[in-house]
Design a protein around this nucleic acid. Structure first.
Lengths: 258, 258
DNA sequence: CGCTCGTGTTGCTCTATACGCAACAACCAC
DNA sequence: GTGGTTGTTGCGTATAGAGCAACACGAGCG
């Protein structure tokens, strides 16, 4: 009868607070108590008291104008510490900068976290036409070039977990068939780079290559993103070559001796 | 007997979790359960369960190598949202870059939060000799140029709160006498800029000017920091002129019509 | 100007829950 | 092997936090 669940261990009020924090996004940077209450299915008073606690520690604050809550400055300090931990963050920056100058397109470094691809570092291009991405953004792994290259070199368990989660369709090009995805991953491993032609967003293409650490393990992906008008299929070879070279350089900075 | 305290309202387990998060720093980016337990005076089991909850939501993770906890990637996403909220963050960047190029020293934008100065934005200089600061770092207001310029234009309540908190001595130059600090603030307001000559760290000088918003209210400080060998007292006039000009430019980008 | 509606906060009660204790398990050093 | 850390887990109990409802507050409108 009683299912001993892992989740039974978790402190519910803490989990509520963390989920409230995570419910903020670029699209919804400010929220009322009742917004949160309905969207997370929590009682008004629970939310109210949780917000008061979060505010007392500076994790949120009440905007005096709109009287809504926004994320607070305590989070800023913490994220700098997160970055200072990850070596890739520092080592990749100069390499990305040069690549962006060379290709004229925005470049990212990303890793996989909880079945999602998350951007650690970004260097933007100067083109007026750009895409709104940001450090910390999360994307699905099965339809982004960075996600697929990470999956290609990941162990089976992770790939299975992604497949079990289901391959959501975003565009007509999104790969939703598990077998086709597996075939694609195989090919990616053979080529040493991955592509996404409008698999997540219409009109957006990207190319990615793996970054290795000192043990030869793939720990991140270096990707370049741009509109399909600028990243055309006949240019892929040339782009990929430079992206692979840049990824190799980051790898070497991470101690990789390939 | 019973003192009705504001703090009685706060959810204690949530507050524990938030304090645990905030206990991480650049100096101590990874911690064991018992470290946290002793430093925050919480029971081992309490910490253990709180950490499990934090980990389940991606706010921390256990490093497989060291078996210690580190801050997690969930915080990255959130801090990007914090930045996207603050206009100063975006508007100041190009101005800071030019100033850094011109002066050859690191520049910051900072605001005051909970009686501390916090860096929102930073552009580093190329000098090999630099100081380890980072976005999100917190410093005391009474012995930094940014802090003092913010206090100079702040309302009386804030200044009193800082004075009540006590003026801790960091170096022989730190102003610890309330009257002297008030006199200094008055002078800063007259000059339109503030200085700190080794008031927080030995060998480190800084100069700051106020940034205004569209209502003419001081909302941030623009500061330049460097070693005393490079920021000498006879150069202050020249530096200050350029810093004030840069701060004015940021202000204008914020809608200030002075 | 008063009315109502939507919203956030606060007493109060009761139960779920998070804490503390202690035992256990896992690991390291020696 | 042993002794010393350290992290996790059961368990019972005190209590803290969720839910309800009442209230306070302000905005919008007739």
């Amino acid at each position: 009868m009683e299912v001993k669940n892992q989740e039974d261990q978790y402190l519910s009020s803490v989990r509520n607070a963390l989920r409230i924090l995570k419910s903020f996004s670029m699209d919804e940077p400010e929220k009322k108590v009742s917004d949160i209450s309905t969207s997370l299915g929590l009682n008004k008073s629970t939310v109210s008291r949780t917000m008061a606690t979060l505010a007392s520690e500076g994790f949120v604050y009440k905007d005096p104008e709109s009287k809504k809550y926004r994320l607070g400055l305590s989070l800023l300090s913490l994220s700098s510490i997160v970055n200072s931990n990850t070596d890739v963050y520092h080592e990749s920056y100069p390499v990305l900068s040069r690549l962006v100058e060379n290709l004229g397109e925005t470049a990212h470094i990303s890793v996989i976290d909880k079945l999602e691809v998350i951007y650690l570092q970004k260097v933007e291009c100067n083109h007026p036409v750009r895409f709104l991405t940001h450090v910390g953004r999360r994307n699905p792994p099965h339809c982004t070039s960075s996600g697929k290259v990470l999956l290609a070199y990941a162990d089976e368990g992770l790939v299975n977990a992604v497949l079990e989660q289901g391959l959501e369709k975003y565009t007509k090009n999104t790969i939703t068939d598990p077998d086709k995805l597996l075939a694609n991953l195989k090919e990616i491993k053979k080529n040493g780079y991955s592509t996404s032609f409008e698999e997540l967003n219409e009109g957006v293409n990207s190319i990615a290559a793996p970054v290795y650490d000192y043990r030869g393990k793939v720990i991140a992906a270096l990707s370049v993103v741009g509109p399909k008008q600028r990243i055309q299929s006949h240019k892929v070879q040339g782009f990929a070559k430079k992206i692979i070279a840049a990824a190799k350089e980051v790898s070497e900075r991470m101690g990789y001796r390939g």
